[in-house]
Simulated assay, not measured.
Amino acid sequence: MPDAVGSPELRRNGQRLAAASAALGLSAASVLLRTPVLGYVSVPVSLFAFLPVLANAGRSLGKERAINDQVLAATRAAICVAMGYYCILALDATLQSAGQRLFLRQEDGFRKNLKQAAQQHGLVLPVDMPLQPDRRQIHAEQTAERAAPWMLGFFVLTIPMMGVNRAAAFLTTTFGGHLRNLGPYTSRRVIHAAMQEGIVLMQPDALESAAQVDTLVIDSRLLEGLPQEEVHGLIDGLQRQYRVQVLDAAAQHISFGELQASGNKVAYLHGPEDELGRQAAFLCIACGNRAAQVTSAPILLLGDGIRQLPVLLALANTFTQRQRFNFIAPIGVDLMDIATTVFLDFGLIYSVLFTYTGLGLGVVNNHLEKCKGNPISEQELLPVPAPIR
Rank of each mutant, 00 (worst) to 15 (best):
Q293S: 14
F319S: 00
A249I: 12
A267I: 07
L283F: 08
R322W: 08
L313D: 05
R290I: 01
R290M: 06
K265W: 03
K265N: 04
A286E: 01
A286H: 03
T295H: 15
N317P: 02
G288T: 10
G257V: 13
Q260G: 09
A249S: 13
A267F: 07
E273M: 11
C287Y: 05
I306C: 06
P272L: 04
A286W: 05
L269E: 02
I328F: 10
G303W: 09
V294N: 15
C287Q: 02
Q308S: 15
L269R: 02
T320N: 13
Q260D: 05
G271V: 00
Q252R: 13
I285V: 15
I331L: 10
E275T: 07
V311L: 15
A314I: 08
F282D: 03
L313K: 01
I285F: 07
Q323P: 02
F327T: 01
R278E: 09
F319P: 03
Y268N: 04
H253Y: 13
Q252G: 13
L312F: 15
A261W: 12
R322F: 02
L335P: 04
Q293D: 08
D248Q: 12
A249P: 01
F256C: 00
A314S: 15
N289E: 10
P272A: 15
P330S: 00
Q308F: 03
T318G: 09
G332Y: 02
D334N: 13
I331M: 13
N317S: 14
A291R: 09
S262L: 13
G271H: 08
G277L: 04
G263A: 07
A314P: 07
G257A: 12
F319N: 13
A250F: 10
A292Q: 14
Q260I: 12
A329S: 08
H270E: 05
I306R: 03
G257D: 14
S296M: 04
F325R: 12
I328Q: 00
F282K: 00
T320R: 13
V311E: 05
A286S: 15
Q293N: 12
I331G: 05
I306T: 06
D274A: 10
N289Q: 14
R322M: 11
E273V: 06
A316Q: 01
L269I: 06
A281Q: 06
N317T: 15
A291F: 00
V333G: 04
T295W: 08
F319A: 03
N264V: 05
Q293V: 08
D304G: 11
N326L: 06
E258Q: 03
L276M: 14
G305W: 05
A250T: 10
L259P: 07
V333I: 14
A281D: 06
A249Y: 08
S255H: 14
